[in-house]
Amino acid sequence: MKYLIVHDAAPGQFIHIYKHLRSEGHEVVVASRRGTTHRLPVKQLVYELPEELKGSRSGYTAKVIGLGLSLYEELKPLAFDGWAPDVILSHASRGASYFLRDLFPRARIVSLFEWYYGAPNPDTGMDEGAFRQQAANAAATNMPISRDFDCMDAGYTPTLFQRDAFPKSWHRNLEVIHDGIDTDFYTPANKRAIEVNGKRFRKGDEIVTYAARGMEHTRGFVEFMAAISEVQKRRPDLQVLIAAADRLCYDPGEKGKGLKSFVDETIDYDRERTHFLGLVPEAKFVSVLQVSSLHVYLTKPFVLSWSLLNAMSVGIPVLGSASAPVQEVISNGDNGLLVSMDDGQALADAMDHLLADQVEAGRLGRAGRETVIERYGLAQCLQRQLDLMRG
């Protein structure tokens, strides 16, 4: 069969599907955005905004259409030569897939939906101008996502929490299927050592890990750093490994530099025992988790990160924020601990407790791994995705 995979950073969340299709000998064409392209041993197409639409002067709607037309132009020669995919796998996002149904009317389109943006709560005290701007941004961002929903044959979203962000009328047409965690790769390791900035860390050292795409409020970076500075004062041997880029990915407003400079200026953490790794490749990230004594995952109500489930799969205890996406995975005291992200004292106390009580930490770590195997294991998630694609 012929498959077309469309994702701004392809293969992205479709990595396991992509590998499976290749292993079965299917013809796969991948389309991704310029600047985010991974070199793959298949035919690749690259789309991008036309130069005249780049920058803040162009409205979001024009950019959505421009991105869709860019991919349309890239695919048109294939279509005119008679090539057509049997299945299109599309990431519902910024508009690249806007014209796929027009170009390939007979293809089965399966779309991955991550998030639907709501207007801000009017009771937050936000001034009128900011409220109107955020509401307008949400409506514009949802436009290409709604188009994908109208054009799809089937759709899915990774978690119940994420599905519930979409309009209720959509729910019956959105399957809840996680991307899947490779629990054979993210597995416990009794003997593991890594080197970071010339320092060697081993399994058994007292290490707290934190991971995110960016250093920002959405993922509780400031709250984590404030709490860890307190725990470092209590535990002189504690080391901290932070796998994150100093950038903003999900916080509202302009994207750019992250919050590390703010933390450096306002929080008295131990610079000698806090190690910033940046974004690390997966092979190194699993080693970081395997030497960890405790992983901390904090998030506001938003898309659930893979890193939470990766850490649980490795079998280390996880301290998470008591927010809806995390509560879907972690039952407090059963397979992890949950505290309010806004309660710095509770965060510090919970970290201190899990580092001190290795019996409790071990029990929670083992239970966390069982949760991932039972609910998010790659084999079962991949099979459900393939079944959806085949109809």
Rank of each mutant, 00 (worst) to 15 (best):
H7L: 02
I15R: 15
H16I: 05
Y18F: 15
L21F: 02
S23V: 12
E24R: 15
G25C: 06
H26S: 06
A31G: 03
T37F: 00
T37H: 10
H38I: 11
H38P: 00
P41R: 11
K43E: 14
Q44E: 14
L45T: 06
L49F: 09
E52S: 11
L53R: 10
G55R: 04
G55S: 09
S56P: 06
R57C: 02
R57S: 08
G59M: 07
G59K: 12
K63F: 01
G68P: 08
L69C: 01
Y72K: 10
E73V: 03
E73W: 04
L75N: 03
K76D: 03
L78E: 00
A79E: 13
V87M: 03
V87F: 00
S90W: 10
S90E: 14
R94S: 09
R94Q: 09
G95H: 04
G95R: 01
L100D: 11
R106N: 14
F113M: 13
A119G: 00
P120F: 04
P120G: 05
D123V: 08
T124E: 13
M126S: 07
T141C: 08
P144I: 07
S146E: 15
M152D: 04
D153Y: 00
D153G: 15
A154C: 05
Q162I: 03
R163K: 15
F166M: 10
F166S: 10
P167G: 05
K168D: 11
W170D: 07
W170I: 10
W170C: 07
H171M: 09
R172W: 06
N173S: 14
N173M: 12
I177H: 02
I181D: 01
D184C: 05
Y186V: 07
Y186E: 05
T187R: 15
K199P: 00
K199S: 12
E206D: 10
R213V: 09
M215S: 09
M215L: 15
V222S: 07
E223V: 06
M225W: 02
M225K: 09
I228K: 13
K233P: 01
L238C: 07
L238G: 06
V240Q: 11
L241M: 07
D246A: 01
C249V: 15
P252K: 13
P252H: 11
E254Y: 02
G256C: 06
G258V: 00
F262R: 13
D264V: 03
T266S: 14
D268P: 06
R271I: 01
E272G: 14
L279Q: 14
F285W: 11
V286L: 02
S287Q: 15
L289P: 05
Q290F: 04
V291K: 07
S292R: 01
L294R: 13
T299V: 03
P301I: 01
P301V: 04
V303H: 06
A311E: 13
G315R: 09
I316N: 03
L319P: 10
L319M: 10
A322P: 00
A324R: 13
P325V: 02
L337G: 01
S340Q: 12
D349C: 03
A350F: 05
H353K: 15
H353W: 14
L355P: 13
Q358A: 11
V359A: 14
E360V: 11
T371I: 07
E374A: 14
R375D: 08
Y376P: 10
Y376D: 08
G377K: 10
G377M: 11
L378A: 05
C381Y: 10
L382K: 10
D387E: 15
D387K: 14
L388N: 05
M389R: 01
